[in-house]
Design a protein around this nucleic acid. Structure first.
Length: 576
RNA sequence: CGGGGCGUGGCGCAGCCUGGCAGCGCGUCUGCUUUGGGAGCAGAAAGUCGGAGGUUCAAAUCCUCUCGCCCCGACCA
């Protein structure tokens, strides 16, 4: 492609509304433009990178035995009512009516549609296993779209669905997708990690997220420094041995006392005011749920993990109570809630179980209680692991040190079990003629997010550094003097040679000064740059530079095409 | 939804507090010069000051309403 023909509007300055580096660079490099919040147009350069990722995904999905299909964006509400998600999914699901008043939604995911397809078509165990995938635009009305393609409302997603006769087969399908995902992200040049994850509102029993390690990531990842354990913060288990450590003092229970603590609310304020440590303190958090309200107790130096609370309670929604609700249930403004005398359900983190002579809110304004003891002063209906892992916790598997990093979720795989097949009656007949539910799995990849994550991980102060396999062009040729016929013809010759060999080449044929061409080439991040200028041409040489390393090589003009072909081959291979 | 911020030529911003000719840098167009890391000179085009209403002799500026965008929290590929 010739630059003068290409629609490539690069920006010299950073657009004001772009915060993270990948968003800034995708805008500046002319890859995307925003239509409205969370909704983007892909320009030629951006689309090419996205197509590259899609092709890698297709190759690996086919290699893993999945077949491509394409399902509609518009889905009938009936199916969602049948699965029960019409009422559960929330505002993220965009709903609308057609002219007849029938309810529809824009597909945020396709479990319902595919399960409907399968229940109509699959009858026998002989039809299984089956794995179908699509690459299709999803719509989710996110509460807060952010960071360009990182969290859009309309976005391209690869979603695959596996159907097996039994758990054993489903485990195999899951593993095969797990392996395919590893190959896909490897090939995209990403530094990533597969972590255990919560299943959220997709549901199912078990899942892994594929996290690209980056400081700008929206998720926290807990991983062991020694063993293979890695999990999303919201899923990460607390090492049970570690939490049994003695928290309060070991002395026998003292009597409970009420103390006045005017305007002392936070853990920090309370510990200072009463001269106690956070470990003697119990935080009482009031949550409203889709069922009854609940009070959750955690130790003063710990944080509640809402996901764990939600799972323990088995509720659909969970929300930290507002000021008014807190007042209603505790009789005190926020900051003074405690377990003593509370009439709502109380559950507690395991660490609270061994605590004695606790300090907690007095359910009365400006009042705390000291010397509080469970059993005598209040009861807990259930103990469970309800808190966020801290950096000082130990690995739940091997007990060694853990570390907490940030990550961008680019892929998520789920073992769904029979959740959807049961809800939508997707069954088959086994060898013995018994009707059984199909065991499902589902597997997603955010395509645009993968490109954004790759940029987040591969850039420098001058711009993007595309990994070869997803680069929109593999080579950029910069003839420095467009008025010099020899330079121009050398550039044309190389361009034609490479193009003939199937190389994706961008020829910067603009009559611009060298500096402008260099800057733009760096910005758009093409892995290999060929500079053709009067000086080196006089010696019969062209200059090849690697975008990633800045390394430069002078290559004889006649061999340039072969050298470049080799370089491309090597750079792709080294990623595989 | 709660909290914070911003809407002024294509992009980045100033002007607003204290009302009085709509500005600066970059980009764009024309000409000449220049030509290996975002050139110089000369000239030119381009703005409903997000929108509506109000106050005023006069509104980008003050007031009310409204729309949009960004950031921080709960959701997710």
């Amino acid at each position: 492609m010739r630059y003068t023909k290409l629609f490539l509007p690069t920006l010299r300055e950073i657009p004001a509304d772009a915060e993270v580096i990948s968003h800034q660079l995708m805008l500046r490099a002319g890859m995307i433009r925003k239509l409205t919040s969370g909704i983007y147009t892909y320009l030629p350069l951006g689309l090419r990178a996205i197509k590259k990722v899609k092709e890698i995904i297709r190759e690996e999905m086919e290699r893993a035995g999945a077949q491509e299909i394409l399902m509609p964006t518009v889905q009938p509400a009936d199916l969602w009512k049948e699965s029960g998600r019409w009422d559960v999914y929330g505002k993220e699901l965009v709903r609308f009516k057609d002219r007849h008043g029938r309810d529809y939604c824009l597909g945020p995911t396709h479990e319902e549609v595919i399960t409907d397809l399968i229940r109509n078509e699959v009858r026998s165990y002989r039809d299984l296993p089956l794995n179908l995938y699509q690459i299709q635009n999803k719509f989710r009305d996110e509460i807060r779209p952010r960071f360009g393609l990182m969290r859009g409302r309309e976005f391209s997603m690869k979603d695959a669905y596996s159907f097996d006769a039994d758990e054993e087969g489903a485990a195999k399908s899951y593993q095969s997708m797990f392996d395919a995902y590893n190959r896909i992200f490897e090939r995209c040049g990403l530094n990533f990690k597969a972590v255990e994850a919560d299943t959220g509102n997709i549901g199912g029993s078990f899942s892994h997220e594929f996290m690209v390690l980056a400081d700008t990531g929206e998720d926290a990842i807990v991983s062991c420094t020694e063993c293979e354990y890695a999990a999303n913060m919201e899923k990460a288990e607390v090492n049970p041995d570690y939490i049994i450590e003695k928290a309060g003092d070991e002395s026998s229970p003292v009597s409970m006392e009420k103390v006045s603590t005017p305007n002392v609310r936070t853990v920090e304020e309370v510990t200072q005011f009463l001269s106690v440590t956070p470990k003697q303190l119990v935080k009482t958090m009031i949550f409203e749920t889709s069922a009854e309200p609940v009070a959750v107790l955690v130790r003063g130096d710990h944080e509640v993990n809402p996901t764990k609370v939600k799972n323990v309670l088995g509720v659909e929604t969970l929300e930290l109570a507002g000021e008014e609700t807190v007042l209603k249930f505790t009789g005190a403004p926020a900051g003074f809630a405690g377990a003593v005398g509370l009439s709502i359900k109380i559950i507690a983190d395991t660490a609270v179980e061994s605590m004695k002579n606790m300090v907690m809110g007095g359910n009365e304004k400006d009042t705390h209680l000291i010397g509080v003891n469970r059993g005598r002063d209040f009861e807990v209906s259930e103990f469970a692991d309800l808190r966020l892992v801290t950096p000082s916790d130990r690995c739940p598997r091997c007990g060694k040190a853990i570390e907490i990093k940030r990550g961008i979720e680019v892929g998520h795989i789920f073992k769904l079990g029979d959740k959807y097949s049961k809800a939508l009656s997707a069954t088959y007949l086994d060898q013995n003629g018994n009707e059984r539910y199909i065991i499902m799995g589902c597997y997603g990849i955010g395509v645009g997010r993968t490109v954004a994550a790759a940029i987040e991980q591969n850039h420098d102060k001058n711009g993007i550094i595309f990994p070869m396999p997803i680069a929109p062009y593999q080579v950029v040729i910069l003839p420095l003097q467009m008025r010099d016929s020899e330079v121009v013809s050398a550039a044309d010759t190389l361009y034609n040679q490479l193009t003939r060999h199937g190389v994706e080449v961008l020829l910067d044929d603009r009559d611009e000064r060298a500096g402008v061409k260099f800057k733009d080439a760096d910005l758009i991040g093409i892995p290999l740059r060929v500079t053709i200028g009067k000086k080196s041409l006089k010696e019969g040489k062209l200059e090849v530079q690697f975008r990633a390393t800045g390394e430069t090589e002078l290559v004889p003009r006649e061999q340039a095409d072969k050298v470049l072909l080799d370089m491309i081959k090597n750079s792709v291979r080294s990623r595989e």
